[in-house]
Amino acid sequence: MDNKINSSPVEKEKITMPEMLTVSPSPHVKSPETTTTLMVDVLIALSPAIIWGVVVFGWRAAMHVLLSVAAAVGAEALYEKLMKKPITVRDCSAAVTGVLIAMNVPVSVPLWMPVVGSVFAIVVVKQLFGGIGKNFVNPALSARVFMLSWAGDMTRFTAAGDRINSLLPALGEADVVSSATPLAALKTGALPSESFLDMFLGRQGGCIGEVSAVLLLVGAVYLLIRKVITWHIPVAYIGTVAVLTFIFSRNGMFSWEFMLYELLAGGLMLGAFFMATDYSTSPVSPKGRIIYGIGCGAITVLIRFFGTYPEGVSFSILIMNLLVWYIDKFAKPRRFGGKTSGK
């Protein structure tokens, strides 16, 4: 029989080792979960918000998403080919980065901008540091900050305006004709003209993927149910922003109105659920994740209140990304039977 197999190359091919056969020390925990399934879950969770972005901002938003994803995946494949590394585009992580970059730009930016951002995110932030899992800051957010160098384009927000009014007539007219975003209004210390319901549903100006809080929450619930993310970071993050903006409201103290607007405006929901929870740039232990979330929240509020930019979500997450190593050290879980302190 052996001879028979050896004689035929086709037969020989068939008896190669099955791919899933691994030899490892215990515990022998098996999970169907792979990077690909996780990333596809994230894409599924993001899709309602993307679809809403296309509905609100038009086909140009879809163009941004497609171009950005193509650029991210293309850049990863090309870099890995040039560097003679295994090609990892099939794990979809580059696609997620591309989608997040497109969701983080206003629809009016030139079409090349998210493409440049994607290439920067993949090549400089991700691949130069060793590829997936080895980047120390979130690639999509770094690309957003990189793109802020074209500040004029990145802060020109198209108000959803008339388009939204015609979309959901049953809800009445949305007051989003002014060009400023709710955040810009908050920055001046005034309450935005949009109603809470409009902002919650996504009838406000802003970046492509951040306008609808409810659809982002739907995606987040999906991720929580699928156990792709844990509750610690988003809850700590959004909770800190809520507490701080409630106590130190812009018009004095203890204002529910201001607090709710701060929570619904800008990229807080998108950042807290989809970007602060990135595996390679967030702490591993629950305690660490809560510290990390609180830090993100505090820095966001500080930048929103005292910074030059109206929005601080991207900067806060990037700053906390840099501290993850220290947080992990500090919040190391106690080994059972070990000493109570980390010493």
Binding site: V124, F146, L148, S149, W150, D153
Partner: peptide, 15 residues
């Protein structure tokens, strides 16, 4: 060419 002002900032210096 749309100037990328990030290169005039410290970040651009490091990059």
């Amino acid at each position: 060419y749309s100037p990328a002002t990030i290169f005039l900032m410290p970040t651009g210096a490091f990059l």
